[in-house]
Design a protein around this nucleic acid. Structure first.
Lengths: 120, 120
DNA sequence: TTAGGTAGTTTCATATAGGGAACCGGTTTC
DNA sequence: GAAACCGGTTCCCTATATGAAACTACCTAA
C-alpha cells in the first residue's frame, strides 16, 4: 500500500499553505520587497525617484515590477498633468497591510546577519 | 546637476533594506516558504515525507532546496542509523525565528485572496 | 522474485528572470 | 543647440530556476 501525506491534511493547514502560495506569487522576484519597502518610506514616488532609490534596479525591471504590482492592486499609478508628464506611484491599503510582514522579515534578516557574522 | 537619491539615505533605512536583501537571498525561490512552513507544522520530517507533504515539488528541487536551507543554517539534516538509512530534517532556532514573519505573510495571503475574490 | 520502501544524483530539456544599451517623443534649462 | 530631465519600450543576450525521467544502491516484506 502506498504511503499518503499526513501532516497537511486538515483544512487550516491547507488554507495556510494556500495563503503562502498566493502571497509568494504576488511578491516573487528580486525587487518587489525593495520597491514596496521604499514606497512605505516615501509615499508618492515617481518613476525616476524609484529608479534612484531602489539600489541597483534597471529601468526595464522597475517598469515590469511596477506593472506587476499595479496589476495585483498593491500600488497605484497616477499620471499627473505636468510638463513634462510625471507619474506617481503609491502603495494601496493592500500593500500597506504587508507592512508588518515585511518588517518582520527585515528584522529577521538583520538578526540573521548579525548572528552569522559573529559566528564566522 | 544630477539628481541624487533622497529617501533611503539614513542609516536605519540602509540597515532595513539590507535586512530585506539578506532575508530574501536565503528565502528566494518557489519552495523555501513551503518547506519551512511544513517543517514548522511537523518537526523531524524525512525526505520522502517532505516529498509527499510539499505539494508539487520534485525530488531534485527538494534535494537542492534542503541543501540550501541547511547551508544557511535554517534546518538541520540528521542521518539515522536505521535500515534502510533514513534522514531527518528539522528546523533550527534561526528557522523558528521566521515563524512570525511567515505567519504574517500567510495571513496576508489569505486576506488578499478573500478580498480579490469578492471583488472580481 | 516482484513490488515497494529508503535518499538521493544525473542527464537533458525548457521556461523564466534579469540586465545592458539604444531608442522614442516630448520638455526644460543653460 | 546641447545636455539633462520625464517615463517608459524594444532588442538582444546570459544566467538561473524549474522540471520529467531515468539511474544508483541498498533493504524489506509478501
Amino acid at each position: 500500500m502506498k504511503k499518503q501525506p499526513v501532516v497537511n491534511n486538515n483544512q487550516l493547514c491547507l488554507v495556510r499553505i494556500q495563503g503562502i502560495k498566493d502571497a509568494m506569487e504576488v511578491l516573487s522576484g528580486k525587487w518587489k520587497f525593495h520597491i514596496l519597502g521604499t514606497l512605505m518610506l516615501g509615499e508618492n514616488l515617481r518613476f525616476m525617484d524609484l529608479l534612484r532609490e531602489v539600489n541597483g534596479i534597471g529601468r526595464k525591471m522597475l517598469s515590469k515590477e511596477l506593472q506587476d504590482l499595479e496589476m495585483n492592486h498593491l500600488i497605484t499609478r497616477t499620471v499627473l498633468d505636468t510638463k513634462p508628464v510625471t507619474v506617481e506611484y503609491s502603495i494601496t491599503e493592500f500593500g500597506k497591510a504587508l507592512y508588518p510582514g515585511i518588517n518582520e522579515i527585515a528584522n529577521w534578516g538583520i538578526a540573521y546577519r548579525n548572528a552569522i557574522y559573529k559566528k564566522e
